[in-house]
Design a binder for these strands. Structure first.
Lengths: 248, 248
DNA sequence: CTCCGTTCGAGACAACCGTCACACCGGAGC
DNA sequence: GCTCCGGTGTGACGGTTGTCTCGAACGGAG
């Protein structure tokens, strides 16, 4: 989790413009508006582990993930992390504090080498005032976040580690899995440590939970990070709220 | 938690109008707009324990708490509840699903006898389209929710019950406490059961945590629901993220 | 005042999980 | 081949907490 590459400005504004087209937040704009917007943006590439901002900092502006992945999380003084959500290409990060003027409610870090479009706060405010449609898009984004966080809270409150893992894996399989004759196969691009932060638990507990799911036959580890899920529906059932996946 | 009074329509539209004035969501409207709005609203009074909506239901409209208190929560199949937030007079409930068209992400119930203003979905949409200021106010509300939920998630992930309780009590004391010579005194209007749902734990654990805080001397129970906090700052410290309030 | 449902405290128990410690594996680099 | 070293599995241990059970205390209704 160390900084591999320092952020360096990139001159290619053209890329930014075509990128903005594919972002829901700015999809309704015409070409001219997007061109003006693109001129305001700064594109930077950061290596894995670059901290964009931390909890409590005043908000500097809006980030949009062009490529790579950004993890938004909270840290406890003892060093444990709880991942709130991760955002991939085309997704905005930290749009909330832009509106209410408050500090960042969480921290953000690049999980892999990532290209990020940065829009300074002042420019975003101007954009937002002269273009009311943005508001609706922002509400939609905030809504998604809210729904997601409701589920995170419920997960932490009700479900044991195995159930959380089952839930995570089944969602992952539905989104990124590839169908084979024997079932759905997924390639986990996370270490146990990263998984544990996402699930709000410890590294070792993830190992144990994986083992238990394997003993039950709902998953099978093919290689170091390749997992076969014979029946995704069955796995999803184990992850249902309130279910205890362990010990039958 | 049983229904005491069925909801009955109330004819007094005058009340509604003056109520709307004090709601941030509609504060920017002029009197005429508010009058039109008030005409669309339905005011109902429900007894304690009346379920307004449950998780997954399609959204019917916006609720605003006129008096009383509404609890928003998720339920596990085993019957446990996790309170996400509670809303009092002047606060809107369930504005989120109005925008993205999705179902209610949680359930809501009146904690005490409450008067609720209900604005049907179609009317709210019309209002929202012709009045962009509403959007900004909604974003502000969603922002508050989001920040709150981030803290709920962190709390559940990192802190033990005693720390969560300490955090809750110190916040409660700062908001509703009355200063005395011996410290801050609070009157808890919740049962242990309700507290446990708010803190994401069991009734018995709340009792244990209260006892431990009392043994440490940071709180002192005066009567059934009256608690004296000699030093609120010290209590707050115990509730800080990552702190383990138990066993020093 | 008595009755009775609600609320509360307390003890016992097992499950779950975080932590520590240690061994192992596999790839990168020499 | 070799050594590192990050990632991983496993066992042990203790603390926290959910659950069960019981009895006591409270408070409103009659």
């Amino acid at each position: 989790m160390t900084v591999v590459t320092r952020g360096v400005p990139q001159p290619h504004a053209m890329d930014t413009r075509s990128l903005l087209e594919r972002i829901p937040l700015f999809a309704r704009f015409d070409d001219e508006a997007r061109a003006r917007l693109a001129a305001r943006c700064l594109t930077r590439t950061h290596g894995a582990g670059h901290v964009l901002f931390t909890t409590g900092e005043p908000c500097r502006g809006l980030y949009i993930v062009a490529s790579g992945r950004v993890r938004i999380y909270r840290t406890s003084p003892t060093g444990r992390e709880q991942v709130l959500h991760t955002e991939g290409p085309g997704r905005p990060v930290a749009e909330l504090p832009l509106f209410d003027g408050g500090p960042y409610p969480a921290s953000a870090v690049t999980e892999v080498q990532s290209r990020l479009v940065f829009l300074p706060r002042a420019d975003f405010e101007a954009l937002y005032r002269e273009n009311p449609d943005v508001a609706e898009e922002v509400i939609r984004e905030l809504g998604k976040r809210l729904r997601h966080l409701v589920r995170v809270a419920e997960t932490l409150a009700f479900r044991d580690v195995a159930a959380r893992l089952a839930s995570f894996l089944s969602e992952y399989a539905e989104q990124y899995g590839t169908e084979t004759a024997a079932g759905t196969e997924i390639v986990l691009d996370r270490t146990r440590e990263e998984l544990s932060q996402e699930l709000g638990t410890a590294r070792e507990s993830v190992s144990r939970a994986l083992k238990q799911l394997a003993q039950k036959g709902v998953i099978r580890t093919l290689a170091r990070r390749r997992i076969l899920i014979p029946d995704v529906t069955r796995l999803r059932t184990l992850g249902r709220p309130g279910e205890r996946a362990r010990y039958e």
